[in-house]
Design a binder for these strands. Structure first.
Lengths: 152, 152
DNA sequence: TTAATTATTGCAAATTTTTGCAGTAATAAC
DNA sequence: GTTATTACTGCAAAAATTTGCAATAATTAA
């Protein structure tokens, strides 16, 4: 299904990814510090949505003593660069690698049910935004709120 | 422009709105307490995006001594009912009346520029979601992240 | 190599947000 | 009416998140 679509990426090769990331950061005058590397490692290891807490706990298990403030600052830093993607799910702020497989959700505001949503729904919208506004919409993880069929 | 579109509403009549809200809450077994009324009053008075702090401060000015916990709980309560709409803007959680005039934004993740976006872009998407999933998407305040023309 | 500059971190404090629970107020049952 | 039930609030404590600043580490310039 959605695996043939526009937004998807091949599986991540950790070494390649890390070295490209390093170059990317350096080209902006930023640094790829050990702390930042370890935080990215967590995402490469544990795919999916992670809260700042998840990241912090996982680092502790690896006995990587990184301050909470650094974790928060790094997550924001990577989000701004588009390396991580952030969203609000069930009232929690969660992060994931932007390269992770594209997926969208319909979330019912009444019962919190989550329905998966196929990629193609946004193709036209993305084209319009580019044509009319020269805006490069990054719609790889859309969450749409509303009422599901049971709660209508 | 967007004033002729689907999602827009006539200006809010405070008395009508409040009495309808009261009925709405009662029909669900909830209560329209003085605290909840005062919080809604703030939104009727000061239109636009408000942080929990804004609401709390405004209430203090009116010497309405409402506990912060109550403010947070009420904002979440009204959001879940669809009375208020919540979104993340520039890293802050903000609330506004769902009935407020529809508007959408394109936000550049690099320079934080905000571009207004017309309503009609979502018509087709909303129809599709209803046709295919019987999901009533509530797309009155969409924020799309990406790169603006200058930052591409 | 050394000095100067800049980005980044850790720590501690401040701020914001959430939570448990006892008390209060409204509604429903009798 | 009175009592029982349930929703809601305030308070105080806990947890999560942000911030200022001095110290550190990396990069750049000399």
């Amino acid at each position: 299904m959605s695996n043939e679509h526009r937004h998807n990426h091949p599986p991540i090769e950790p070494e390649v990814f890390l070295s490209e990331l390093k170059t990317e950061l350096h080209s902006h005058g930023y640094r790829f510090t050990p702390q930042r590397k370890q935080i990215i490692d967590v995402f490469l290891d544990r795919h999916g949505h992670l809260t700042p807490r998840d990241v912090y706990d996982h680092l502790e298990q690896l006995s990587a003593a990184i301050d909470q403030a650094t974790v928060y600052r790094s997550l924001e830093f990577f989000s701004r660069l588009g390396i991580l993607h952030t969203s609000q799910i069930a009232g929690q702020t969660v992060f994931e690698l932007s390269q992770a497989v594209t997926h969208h959700h319909l979330v019912c505001r009444k019962c919190d049910e989550v329905l998966p949503l196929d990629d193609h729904h946004f193709d036209q919208l993305v084209e319009h935004l580019w044509a009319e506004h020269k805006f490069k919409a990054e719609l790889s993880h859309v969450t749409i709120s509303g009422l599901c069929s049971k709660c209508t």
